[in-house]
């Protein structure tokens, strides 16, 4: 199994805030890695470092075996990395269809106009967005906005998909729907996925491995079972294991 993403000893601070302090992790091809941790743990910052929005103060990022530290975001994207944003960033005055189409156009695939339009159509159908295809993205509700984020990322046919809280703010049936779609997309496209998530039962259910960040440091790493039993995690993050589920559920329902 080849290594898709390797993060080595990454540091990043903003003024006095140390967002990342020596984080390392490895993501193998074909797996789903769950990235969890309390608010402000540095999860989004880690995504931003991986995708080149921020240059790490120290440390290395390797993608598909290449050192990409300090590369600009678009070059990293062109390697086959797609991401969603925690606060969705649709192209508001383009239609849902146009949002996906432009993403397809800038993926590495060479498609004719006709093929690109059909592909866009297919992805919208896959995520149940086809009936909203010609609405402006700015008119979507949160749940549909999250789907559009996912659609636009999938449209790139990435090798590595970074999902930043795509389940936040969704009701239980929407969460189930998204999870189902993520699983299917992984199978169909052979994706490797890193997902940041607060919806704990979801991430426990879907992830092969879990990394816990806490105050910018990696606190623990292991299978979902190991993490759920790890006393340090329980102490730092989950508190009383019996209350854990209720707690994280409450966290996940807060909307940012």
């Amino acid at each position: 199994m080849s290594v898709v993403l390797r993060v080595e000893n990454v540091y990043k601070s903003f003024g006095g805030v140390k967002a990342l302090e020596g984080v390392s992790m490895t993501v193998n091809e074909g797996m789903i890695l769950g990235l969890i941790g309390p608010n402000g743990a540095g999860k989004t910052t880690l995504f931003n470092v991986i995708t080149g929005y921020y240059k790490p103060d120290k440390g290395r990022v390797e993608l598909f075996g290449r050192d990409v530290t300090g590369w600009p975001t678009h070059k990293i994207a062109q390697l086959g990395v797609a991401r969603t944003f925690q606060i969705p960033k649709p192209f508001p005055d383009l239609t849902v269809f146009e949002n996906v189409l432009v993403s397809i156009k800038f993926s590495s695939r060479k498609l004719s106009e006709q093929e690109a339009a059909e592909e866009a159509k297919r992805i919208l159908e896959f995520l149940g967005l086809d009936s909203h295809a010609h609405m402006l993205a700015s008119q979507l509700n949160v749940a549909l906005e999250k789907r559009l984020e996912l659609a636009r990322a999938l449209a790139r046919q990435p090798r590595l998909l970074l999902l930043d809280e795509v389940l936040a703010g969704l009701n239980p049936s929407e969460v189930a729907y998204m999870l189902e779609k993520i699983k299917r997309a992984k199978q169909e496209f052979g994706l490797t996925i890193v997902m940041i998530e607060h919806v704990m039962h979801a991430v426990m259910n879907i992830a092969d491995r879990i990394v816990v960040l806490h105050l910018g440091k990696k606190l623990a790493e292991g299978t979902p079972e190991e993490i759920a039993r790890d006393p340090r995690v329980i102490e730092a993050y989950l508190g009383d294991p019996k209350l854990a589920l209720a707690f994280v559920e409450r966290l996940s329902s807060k909307k940012r």
Partner: peptide, 13 residues
């Protein structure tokens, strides 16, 4: 529409 998102889909903005 959104410069960050444009970068993220591979556009050399």
């Amino acid at each position: 529409e959104d410069e960050d998102a444009a970068e993220a889909i591979g556009i050399n903005t």
